[in-house]
Nucleic acid binder design. Structure first.
Lengths: 194, 194
DNA sequence: GTTAGCATGTAAGGAGTTACATGATTTT
DNA sequence: AAAATCATGTAACTCCTTACATGCTAAC
């Protein structure tokens, strides 16, 4: 079962899926990818790589092929076992918190999986969001007038944001089913109900 | 300077600002308030309360006044020092990550501060979001076509969401300046540029 | 009478950050 | 020549979660 800490593992396997890379570059790519907020520190990346080496998910590749005679960098490559693990982490159904925390990463690597898994991840996220939406809206109805102005405004904005994301997911699911990848632009147009 | 762990402290002080409460109730209110995602566990709440007691930010209040003869609950009340700390945490300018992590909590307690602080918090958040937006869009322009379909779609959606939040913040700032609290509905209307 | 919710706490462990340590290479 | 960036790592520390431990009260 997927644990909290498997996030870095998933991200590293996903990036290495595109080709060999060394630690420093992995960190840079990761920080661009997950640019919205948190950055990953070396203090967690390097130990994670060591752990993955021991688990035989990745292997070191000699850098001697580099023509420009740079300083020795440790380039990693994904093993067959690593690819298996990647597919497992991409598709596994775990606790809500884990799946929500890793949705973005999974999405970013959608090209490296098949449609079946993409649909499961998208639909899973949508149903979790809808469930929460229902709970929050029930709560809102129950406590109606007694909420603070600002707290209420925050709730309202939160609900609206989640509703948008649900519509976005619905568009993507439709596109996926219609077999034409993510829609390139129409997310702002009225798309009817979900 | 505000540390990462001051989040619970801020939230507890904010809730107690509305009146005395015991731990169990604090947790419930908090989990409703921050309903979008993570829940706070007893394992972090109770030790935090103990720590705040020692720091003299809150005090225990005897529950003997309760008429229904319930089991003894430990009801906490905020001290003058606690109120000072609350105002400090509400207004303090810290590292980006801290301010971003705590924006929602600060917003939810806006009624307990004055307009000066509300404006500073709202404008601070808006400028941080705009800065990130600029960075990401520059990055998007630089790497144009070479991005993966799904990774690109994720970026696009992220930019759109942040742009929405910037408009929301601008509405709130305008309302705050016009002295009429948060707008009750017009967030979906076109509001021009920021 | 037993399940569900109220109520408070502790201990162990996970995951990641910050700060430290080191040194090569490229740019200014 | 200095500053920035490339590049890899370790140690200490922080914050939080999970799991455990305990017992009362209300509802079914």
């Amino acid at each position: 079962m997927a644990r909290r800490g498997d996030t870095i593992e998933l991200a590293v396997l996903g990036l290495l899926h595109e080709g060999p890379m060394h630690g420093y570059e992995l960190r840079k790519r990761l920080n661009l990818m997950l640019g919205w907020g948190r950055v990953l520190s070396y203090g967690s990346l390097y130990p994670a790589l060591k752990k993955m080496l021991r688990a035989n998910l990745i292997t070191e590749v000699s850098t001697t092929t580099t023509p420009t005679s740079r300083r020795p960098r440790i380039v990693y490559e994904v093993t067959p076992a690593g690819n298996e693990q990647f597919q497992r982490l991409m598709s596994e159904v775990g606790p809500t918190a884990w799946e929500d925390d890793n949705f973005d990463i999974r999405f970013a690597f959608f090209s490296s999986t098949d449609m079946e898994i993409r649909l499961r991840v998208l639909e899973g996220r949508r149903s979790r969001l809808q469930e929460r939406l229902a709970r929050v809206q029930a709560e809102l109805a129950r406590t109606q007038a007694e909420v603070d102005r600002y707290a209420g405004e925050l709730q309202r904005h939160g609900v609206e944001s989640v509703e948008r994301e649900v519509r976005w997911l619905s568009d993507l699911i439709r596109a996926e089913r219609g077999d034409e990848g993510p829609a390139t632009a129409p997310a702002t147009k009225p798309v009817g109900t979900d």
